[in-house]
């Protein structure tokens, strides 16, 4: 890891800690959605348990969309984004660092609060481990795909709605395999195949998304 990458990571994390309240927003949003669901469909434990995997995942997905608008925009506005291409290292490495810090700030907390969310919706206990594993494999994909969409819409001034429309088709497979895995685990079956496919998607996203993101950012600052 080069000095520039480390410096960016430290800076991003320090900023996130300093604006602590803002960094907690995705988590608060996640819980807001999770509280609305029983209010909407009724508090019956059986119904809630059967929809819990899907609902937790949809809530995590919506929460991940929240922070995307600010992923590259502040850097574009204060001109530091252009510096990424003027430094010594490849800009792609800095893009990866930024996506990683975004995941640390928005994805990791979701995994950490997942047990609490699972309790609120009566997710069967054996499925909890699979839920956390699916979030561990899936939330980085959300960050990568979201980062790509944020980079694509960076040059537009009505980015946020467009951003959600661009993200939605790309996360369909993630949602299917992740909730499929948790559903199977809840029924006492092996979720291995689904988790394997989710891992394959993660590998694909890690290899391809940063390349496309870097290209899109490049075009946007031209």
């Amino acid at each position: 890891m080069s000095a520039a990458m480390l410096a960016l990571l430290v800076r991003d994390l320090r900023l996130a800690i300093r604006h602590g309240g803002q960094s907690l927003m995705p988590i608060l949003f996640l819980f807001a959605v999770l509280i609305l669901i029983p209010l909407g469909v009724g508090p019956g434990p059986n119904l809630l348990a059967s929809i819990a995997p899907g609902m937790i995942w949809v809530a995590a997905l919506l929460a991940s969309l929240l922070a995307l608008e600010g992923l590259f925009r502040p850097d574009l506005e204060d001109g530091s984004l252009e510096q990424w291409w003027l430094g010594h290292g490849p800009a792609g490495a800095l893009v990866v660092v930024r996506l990683f810090s975004h995941w640390l700030i928005t994805g990791l907390p979701v995994i950490l609060v997942a047990p609490l969310a699972a309790q609120m919706l009566y997710l069967p206990a054996p499925a909890l481990g699979t839920l956390m594993l699916s979030l561990l494999l899936g939330t980085p994909i959300l960050s990568l795909v979201g980062g790509l969409a944020a980079a694509l819409t960076l040059g537009t001034n009505r980015g946020s709605v467009l951003l959600s429309i661009l993200v939605f088709p790309m996360v369909v497979p993630v949602l299917i395999f992740a909730t499929g895995a948790v559903d199977l685990a809840a029924d006492g079956l092996s979720p291995q195949a689904h988790l394997g496919l989710l891992a394959a998607l993660l590998i694909l996203a890690v290899t391809l998304a940063p390349v496309a993101t870097t290209a899109a950012l490049r075009l946007n600052i031209e």
Partner: peptide, 27 residues
């Protein structure tokens, strides 16, 4: 600029569409 950036999206979609199709079939 818009066209070039949307072209990136088209190519990303080309990778995605078979995956989406397969995953939906599985689902």
């Amino acid at each position: 600029k818009g066209a070039r950036i949307a072209c990136i999206l088209i190519l990303v979609g080309l990778v995605n569409i078979p995956i989406i199709h397969f995953s939906v079939e599985w689902w």
